[in-house]
Design a protein around this nucleic acid. Sequence first.
DNA 1: CGAGCAAAAATTGTATACAATTTGCCTTGG
DNA 2: CCAAGGCAAATTGTATACAATTTTTGCTCG
Lengths: 229, 229
Amino acid sequence: MQIFASPQTSTAEDIVAELTEAVHEHRLQPGMKLREDEVAEIFGVSRTVVRQALRAMSHEGLVAIERNRGAFVAKPTIKEAREVFEARTLLEPQTARAAAERATSEDIAALERHIENEHAAIDMGNAGLALKLSGLFHLEIARIANQRTIEAFAQQLVSRSSLVIALYWQRRGALCESHAHHALMNAFRRQDPDSAEELMKGHLLDLISQLDLRDKPSESASLKDALKK
Amino acid sequence: MQIFASPQTSTAEDIVAELTEAVHEHRLQPGMKLREDEVAEIFGVSRTVVRQALRAMSHEGLVAIERNRGAFVAKPTIKEAREVFEARTLLEPQTARAAAERATSEDIAALERHIENEHAAIDMGNAGLALKLSGLFHLEIARIANQRTIEAFAQQLVSRSSLVIALYWQRRGALCESHAHHALMNAFRRQDPDSAEELMKGHLLDLISQLDLRDKPSESASLKDALKK
DNA sequence: CGAGCAAAAATTGTATACAATTTGCCTTGG
DNA sequence: CCAAGGCAAATTGTATACAATTTTTGCTCG
């Protein structure tokens, strides 16, 4: 399967960006192997640069590197999935509040365009694109809040959320409703930090509620437990 | 100046760990250059491995890599310094709460030993060691809370805090009082999450208040502003 | 026919060689 | 004497070669 276009030479950052985008759009799925030679040929660089990219992504939790075995798209466990959304619940509501306090009319216009794109992606049935845009919306808010450090954390968490969704989303076809995004944007427009914070909190809880994060026997920590009658 | 012991062969992780420890103890100071050859010789590996380590640290915000110019210990700006502690204020109080709910008697014993070590370091006048231990105390709490994801964020934030302290601490000689750490541990012992959360919040605010984060003309964002009469 | 083992192929880990870029110094001309 | 230009040294960026490890293949033997 041809997943990427083939440019000539790329930097490690380019490769990270493209691979990350592919994860966001669920073209790269959890567990897929990323062979260095293969990636190197696709991007027209040597393995040296590919390794930089893969190590960077492993540091973001998007890729799992097993020594002498290679790099794989990460497969977050249920515990990790919970942690990702718990961290988001700590960071993003407050960030939305800060963004609501700072948002300029340009910021709001950008958000509005963004939501339009989300709708367009859903209408044309491009679920992968819709999912990616949905994640980017959250990053845009972090950007507006002007908190680079938290933005970097959010970026990592949103990316990992894509993996969590790929693994644990319940109703496969159903809605990635940008309804909540609309409500958030309106709170920004009203310069209403309290609402923005609450809406973000609710939005995240809503997302979590649509995941199936019940413990499964296969994830049981100990072999002994698994063999219990 | 001889900063490191010289072992034979090390992994990239070893190098990250040693360099990070040196940052924590203020043996490596903001702005110092980290030449690849030099580090490679010290650790007895090739530049390949050193580059892995330096790139990992740059991703953590501990090292700044300038293209074709090399790696330097990062020099957080005042804005970054504020962001680091704002992020800590979002994450750590809640984490302390979670830790207070989960802490076992072994956890508390470990914290107690840790605080003793902090006192010992202060008594023997080893400010660098005391500073490092002070940071590790916060990481120990994240570990007790059993939140790997947040622990990773906290690790990065604590490391960057060491750089911030190196740059912006006001009274050079004065106290890194582990007083607040004692109070936190007692809250854990009482299984008092509310207190733990409040104490951590207050502790962080206290730390921030001892930094000099006033804007300085030299940090003016634009050259144009700087040249204005 | 399947289990076990051994050799071969494939893949990753590390070091080194070479290219590209920057930095410092020295020369030269005003 | 100072500024500008350019050459040389030092340093980083990338590719490649080689070593170590894992995975696959295919054979033998039960």
